[in-house]
Nucleic acid binder design. Structure first.
Lengths: 346, 346
DNA sequence: TGTTAGCACTCTCAGTTAATGAGTGCTAAC
DNA sequence: GTTAGCACTCATTAACTGAGAGTGCTAACA
């Protein structure tokens, strides 16, 4: 979108400043640029250009007599236009591939996601977040009711995504396992392929009219389906929190504390990651573009993961705005694809 | 055990030093003691006593010309003999009770434990740890096998603790749901009340000889039971990690990083909490008494939680050795009892 | 007109110094 | 056995310093 806003020389300087700052975490000055990169320009010229870039909002100065650092706008331009594609190293590639090798396949969804979080954190060196599939968007495939004791029934619901959900309910009346088998069979025939999102009173009322399994059945049905419909089993896996301590911007305890408190609050993280679902594929949010006041001077790189073309959840990393976007983008993108592929095999 | 090792005056001074240091995190000097507490002694006398206490290893000095702080031995003596029982405040009591009120009973085990972690962290202001019941020590109650597709079977295992375990296995042959029902019935009749710990080749071989459900059954059985037996579903819930930032001893980033890295590593935490199971009830470990080199200058206060007199798991907090033992002990003890009581109701 | 050299100025950072204050150990007197 | 007094130690803090990096501006240059 913001293409060719700047002339090539300004672009080059913005790029160099951003690259350098991402690497060093120090404001970069005109002299450094002139020395390190062979632009054929004197520091004075670079200074002039940088002054222009600052005026138009791409760079800023932490204080007079310090070098320049990119503003959010600068990062945005960098990410959109200037950033050079980075390849994964052979080691990284090999590592990721081996972790997603289908032969060591722990069939459990949770374990896979947790491991994905670890991989992502390990390679990017930033805290990583994995959003589980939203149960509301899954389709009902199968239910199995098991009698636990006089008035407890365990419902085992299998979604088309392979996710399995346990629901324990206290029934108003006692059921035999035979009763439950009949009820299960009934529900299976009626609900197959219904999105969990639609589990509400409408569907319950409809079912009620169709058949009755004796006294108290209505209530049981209600309990079961509302429990299932409401079940917020959407979760976030976090790993590599500790990585942010490596980032100089979090050396001040206060900054760090703020971020840690966010990373500990699942509610908040769900909000952050759900934003990632709004757009399919890769998503970069810089600074305020993350819609959350609590997260200051941070960026998120996320990507959705899909099975059979259907978006299930998202993975991503959270880091300072001074993030190694080129690297992170490549990694997040690739890992998301690997995860999707891995899940598809099931 | 270490009763009456010290004469009353020394005891009093050790107590005052410990109390003060726990409160202030500053080494406490003779003058402060003379001023704050009315011992009827001059600073000089107190100094002499403190010198004695240091010589016998109950106190130590961070450096010459600083006040004294308790050594591990000092803390131990304090905890065993000197510490005054602290009551929960009305607020705390009300809060805990309301959280464990059986009327808002989320039937799910995980949710309960996670909330317990939150409660504990909130009240103690230290990171809290909850160890889930060890599946190996549970008794098998019930299994339910569900056919997912041609060669995937979902096993639903219910333990006597109420814990439910999902196992997804890939079977070598295809089973109909009828097959699976027969197998389930067989297993249920044979395995009821068997501790999970005993699920090994012995039991499998025995079962194999008793009945055959066609080709490939042996392998299926093997897969199923080893998966169940091995399943390390023992987990740790952590909450309130951020609280350690309030402790001055973790102001140095390095110290903090070390502890955070431990709190992020579930493997390590399992080790720490499993130690707590070795002794029923309350357990205080100070410094090296925690059998782990990685945890430096920390203490743990843990308590097991029980249902029907059977130890299931443990809860606890991890903090600096300068921990408010009196308070923490009361809270941990009470919360563990509440948790046990709450679980018993199920 | 764009580029560059030069210069005065600003600001941070690391190191030094000195003052402060809390606390100790020791000795001698009570 | 207790205490007052005193010299000494050590950590912490504030103030000051110089070095270094960087800037903006001006004037000269191609």
């Amino acid at each position: 979108m913001e293409r060719r806003e700047l002339d090539p020389r300004k672009e080059k300087i913005l790029q160099v400043v951003t690259d350098d700052y991402i690497e060093s975490a120090e404001p970069v000055g005109s002299r450094t640029i002139a020395r390190k990169h062979n632009l054929g320009l004197s520091p004075a010229t670079i200074r002039n250009e940088m002054a222009d870039l600052e005026e138009s909002g791409y760079l800023k100065q932490p204080h007079t007599s310090a070098g320049r650092i990119p503003s959010h706008r600068g990062y945005r331009y960098y990410v959109n236009t200037l950033m050079e594609q980075k390849q994964l190293t052979d080691d990284e590639l090999a590592f990721i591939k081996s972790e997603f090798d289908s032969k060591n396949k722990p069939a459990e969804f949770e374990a896979i996601l947790q491991r994905t979080a670890k991989i992502l954190a390990l390679i990017t060196k930033y805290p990583s977040l994995i959003l589980t599939p939203r149960p509301q968007e899954a389709y009902f495939r199968h239910i199995h009711l098991v009698s636990m004791d006089a008035n407890h029934v365990l419902g085992l619901v299998v979604m088309d995504t392979g996710f399995v959900e346990n629901i324990l309910i206290e029934t108003p009346v006692a059921y035999t396992q035979d009763d439950l088998n009949r009820i299960s069979a009934f529900l299976n025939s009626k609900l197959h392929g219904v999105p969990l999102m639609e589990f509400g009173s409408a569907i319950i009322n409809q079912l009620k009219t169709e058949v009755r399994f004796g006294e108290g059945f209505d209530d049981t049905l209600q309990l079961l389906l509302t429990a299932l419909g409401k079940k917020r089993q959407e979760r976030i896996y976090v790993d590599g929190t500790i990585n942010i301590l490596e980032q100089p911007e979090f050396k001040q305890v206060e900054k760090f504390k703020l971020l840690l408190s966010i990373l500990e609050e699942e509610e908040k993280l769900l909000g952050l990651m759900n934003q990632a679902l709004q757009k399919r594929g890769l998503n970069i949010r810089i600074g305020d573009e993350i819609n959350d006041d609590a997260v200051e001077d941070c960026s998120m790189v996320t990507a959705t993961y899909e099975v059979d073309g259907r978006v299930l959840g998202a993975i991503g990393v959270l880091g300072p705005t001074r993030m190694d976007y080129a690297h992170v983008v490549t990694v997040v993108d690739f890992v998301a694809k690997c995860l999707g592929g891995f899940l598809s095999e099931k």
